[in-house]
Design a protein around this nucleic acid. Structure first.
Lengths: 233, 233
DNA sequence: TCAAAAGTGTTGCTTGTACACCCATGT
DNA sequence: ACATGGGTGTACAAGCAACACTTTTGA
């Protein structure tokens, strides 16, 4: 247990890591999974693209989740629900600005096809980049390529185990839209019949009263996420 | 991105959290899942039980994983393989010694029925406590009850999705031992035939050449974990 | 009436559970 | 021989993939 020897000096006895929050925000762009990147204006890595993030502010943040929410608000001028902690990474060479860099990484989803968030405090430029392009080739600042890869894996695992990416869809959506969204995330096609029966069997959705939508063909029923009623699994 | 305005002062501009590693070490005691607790000698929470842990030392640790390994070595005088990161938690009221406490929590397994690790640096006394007893009633120092609960959940999820708890077993074990171990973790019985067919179908194990073991009845074949050959899933 | 997308039914495979049964061994 | 735990086979149900099919609409 801790170093409880000298109660007052405990928290200042050792130098602490430069602690940041990083955010992997994902969306679909033209049916491809993409992450939000911010371009760095200053050194280190000036001109390079990196994940949006910010320093943990112990004077402002009541928890890591609050810190992540604040970072999103300050950098992207928006509020994101369902921020999920991905992992924590740390080491002496992660950030040239400090002798030891620690990042707590969060991930979140943004409505597919939505406009780019407004660049907030200290952000030069924002851009959606397909995860594909990051996996091979394009290199990000710091160890952010690794973080994006881990977030992508986590995202796919979620969908594979039927944790649907509602964050990518509007409140009301058609079953085909939902299926196409899942297919885009997973990177392969799904069977329509199986997909729908799964949804049906699990009571995940409910039809939105009377609403539909049209093209030059039969309109589709709109659905919304069903309120999860205290279930455990 | 970050505060890249004043390159040199970045890492010292804001006070950083008191950053620690905590370890949830689990084993089976008489067929019950138990966690290793250490008794606190000094304030805060003097006399209370808590998870073993230690301060992150940026002068010693090359990564969070190394930090966790070091903490285990110093506190428990042992080396543990397969330390898994569980989560990071932080907040201003987590640790009375500091204005803001951040902990990166790792979990690991210890051979069932093994002796208590030797109490290392600054450890007063060690004890295995059934997770059952912690879930209801017994309260630990800091927010460690929460952390144990999360580790227990993660442990059960692992086994449910067929990630076998080899860490609880010796290198060579019988199928019945393995099954009983899984049953103890999950808290309910499993079907012998199903359990074995699953293992068989997935080529997870291999028999250990010619070895067996006896009681007053038919001896059982010993098995070991099969070397995973680069497979993805 | 035709194209296009919505929506349904049927079959078969795979996985897992329940349960019954045989096998080997020391006393 | 028999009790005890090791080990196996069969039957049934659930979940999912593949694929064929019907329905509804606007042009």
């Amino acid at each position: 247990m801790a170093d409880a020897a000298s109660p007052k000096t405990d928290s200042s006895k050792y130098p602490m890591p430069f602690t940041r929050i990083e955010v992997v925000l994902m969306t679909l762009v033209d049916g491809n999974l993409a992450v939000l990147l911010a371009r760095r204006a200053q050194a280190p890595y000036a001109g390079k693209w990196a994940l949006p993030g910010g320093v943990l502010r112990i004077d402002l943040d009541g928890s890591l989740e609050e810190a992540a929410a604040r970072v999103v608000r300050e950098r992207l001028a928006t509020d994101l629900p369902d921020l999920k902690q991905l992992c924590a990474v740390g080491g002496p060479t992660r950030d040239p600005r400090a002798p030891w860099g620690l990042s707590i990484v969060y991930r979140a989803l943004s409505l597919s096809g939505s406009t780019l968030p407004t660049a907030g405090k200290r952000i030069e430029e924002l851009r959606w980049a397909p995860v594909e392009s990051l996996a091979k080739g394009i290199s990000l600042a710091f160890d952010h390529n690794t973080l994006v890869a881990r977030a992508t894996d986590a995202m796919r695992e979620d969908v594979e185990e039927h944790d649907l990416p509602y964050g990518l869809l509007p409140a009301h959506f058609t079953l085909t839209e939902l299926q196409q969204t899942c297919e885009a995330v997973l990177g392969h096609a799904l069977d329509k019949s199986s997909f729908r029966r799964r949804l049906n069997d699990r009571d995940l959705l409910e039809p939105v009263d009377g609403e539909k939508r049209g093209g030059a063909f039969r309109p589709a029923q709109l659905y919304q996420r069903r309120a999860r009623l205290r279930s455990l699994r």
